[in-house]
Write a protein that binds this DNA or RNA. Structure first.
Lengths: 340, 340
DNA sequence: CTGTTAGCGCTTTCAT
DNA sequence: ATGAAAGCGCTAACAG
């Protein structure tokens, strides 16, 4: 009446061999297609596998072959739409390759990141994908000596390492240019933590577009945020507290733009009627904010695919292709011509 | 001048033993604290480990000990804020345990889910966390015979299996009750795919609250969505196309509420002035929509932690604790007293 | 075409 | 307290 508490121990390749009346190597050969096997033996083995519900022990395979068929992915935050999109690309890139992935988070901390990478190396992953890493290039190259590694958000080029970088300067330039073309001259910038390279580049693009239009950068129009909603909202408060006048806001990322939007709403300032707002990233949700957000699109998904393809190429010793779609301005409904 | 193309092969425990002038077993004992070792030998070994930058090969350990120190997590969508929060809980729950996790996606498809679980079993994960799984209980129990498995979104109780379920009926009841108390009587419901149990339960809660208030359920006030923004927006269109009058909308999840919000905006209908809106989930972003969304909070993070604790308990044979915080109504700014 | 043999790197009796 | 030896489950020469 009662089910057994424990299942039978998983059957091994040797069990299968015995059951089918052949040698272990024959079973292995069938499993891997390594050599020709007579049809009758093949049938017998297949039948035994079926019957015993056998599946090869990947740990044993990994130990023997020296490859675990696992790749490691380092993100900075497992619960972020930003990384989500990239991960989706990675997942699709891995589909059908037999590789599985273990995802760890560096939490935007260089030291933790290094530990996590070490953990991945210890787990014998066949390669590493580093997303928006904080650790130095020298550290990466050191790890690259052990496993191939690809990274986003940085240039990087070596026998066992490859980096992908987007032109954030230009992305920001496009955003601000768009605002200027709409007649805005007093444009605030919500920036991010000072140690974030991408954001620093966006600041450069902001400055460049302004200067080019003969507009001086006003420090009172720049506020720092944590790149999250809360920070964006606080930045709007800071901007108003600083007393500057402005008719448009360029936020360093979509999340902080969402927060800024709410900060504006709280003050009864309408978007886009009273204030234009541009974000950066084009997260999936940005097409559904109210109103839909004008933003600079990062090809997150494509980045995930590309970076994965590059890693696989590195692992297999084939040439890596490194084309990445460019940043792109997506004009939606939070920007509008400035009314005198 | 040029760096070596390939690093030295990773050093093994045997290398360390040789270097330190002891036997492999001694090194192993020091690594695992399995037995007392004299201080001088210990020093020598530690020095050798340090110098050779040695780290044990986890594949070999796994093969030998029969446990991989890896757990498998099955989600339905890697790029979803819903799963993100739960994963964050799982991640925190695993912190410091030495376990790493491999995450796979079932894409809301029972068959794919079964395959993915089989993959995890083949990779010898020590346990499985199944989030919002689609596969049948019998299938789960079959897998549970091989590895302990815990699941969310379903009751489940066995020696090697444990499920966690929230009271979605009651959650929906609270949401609709809130609307009724605000004077709303014509309350639309944006539902989800028919095969989603949680959503079906929410529908029951919706119906129950209405009936209890003497309000008959009007089929014209129920529209189906895909539980994403696009579906929510389309549902609003369908609702208006059906010609029904209503002053409030209860969406089966936050994402579709976001979409509904945009659909309303497109029609010039203000929230909450003209229409009240309630979601379900309380995703992190819901506190920052414009205006912030009234919703039913699912303890996603806590669920991740709890379910992880339960799995660890199952693995270690200790008793599983299964307390889960209840669903909770979070009143924000999308609901308001109905103006006659 | 197929079986035998020797490990992959580690842990764990079993002796000493 | 420590070393020797025997595998965990699989694959890859090496013989036939």
């Amino acid at each position: 009446m009662s089910a057994p508490d424990h299942a039978a121990p998983p059957s091994t390749l040797i069990d299968v061999a015995r059951q089918a009346g052949v040698s272990p190597s024959t079973v292995s050969r069938i499993l891997n297609g390594t050599a020709k096997v007579s049809d009758d033996k093949r049938q017998a083995v297949l039948a035994a596998i079926e019957q015993m519900n056998f599946a090869p022990n990947q740990m044993a395979q990994a130990l023997k072959k020296g490859r675990s068929m696992t790749i490691g992915i380092v993100v900075q935050d497992i619960a972020s739409p930003f990384f989500d999109e990239t991960l989706r690309g990675v997942d699709d890139g891995l589909k059908g390759t037999g590789y599985a992935s273990v995802i760890v988070s560096g939490h935007w901390d260089a030291q933790e990141e290094a530990q996590r990478i070490a953990l991945l190396v210890g787990r014998k992953v066949d390669g590493i994908i580093l997303l928006s890493g904080r650790i130095g290039e020298d550290a990466i190259l050191k790890f690259a000596a052990q496993r191939p590694i690809v990274a986003t958000g940085r240039g990087l080029n070596g026998h066992n390492a490859h980096g992908f970088r987007l032109d954030h300067d230009n992305g920001a330039y496009m955003a601000v240019r768009h605002l200027i073309e709409l007649g805005h001259r007093r444009i605030a910038f919500i920036t991010g933590p000072a140690d974030n390279d991408d954001v620093a580049e966006r600041m450069i693009g902001y400055t460049r577009a302004l200067r080019e239009a003969g507009i001086e950068v006003d420090p009172a129009l720049v506020a720092e945020s944590d790149l999250h909603e809360a920070g964006g909202m606080a930045a709007v408060d800071a901007l108003f507290a600083a007393g500057g006048q402005f008719s448009a806001i360029f936020a360093a990322n979509d999340l902080s733009a969402y927060g800024a939007r709410l900060g504006l709403y709280r003050r009864g300032i309408r978007v886009p009627e009273d204030m234009s707002l541009v974000g950066f990233d084009d997260l999936p949700g940005s097409a559904y904010t109210t109103p839909p957000l004008t933003t600079v699109r990062q090809p997150l998904y494509e980045m995930g695919r590309t970076v994965t393809g590059a890693l696989l190429a590195l692992i297999n010793g084939t040439p890596v292709a490194s084309v990445l779609p460019p940043l792109e301005l997506v004009v939606r409904e939070t920007t509008r011509q400035r009314l005198v």
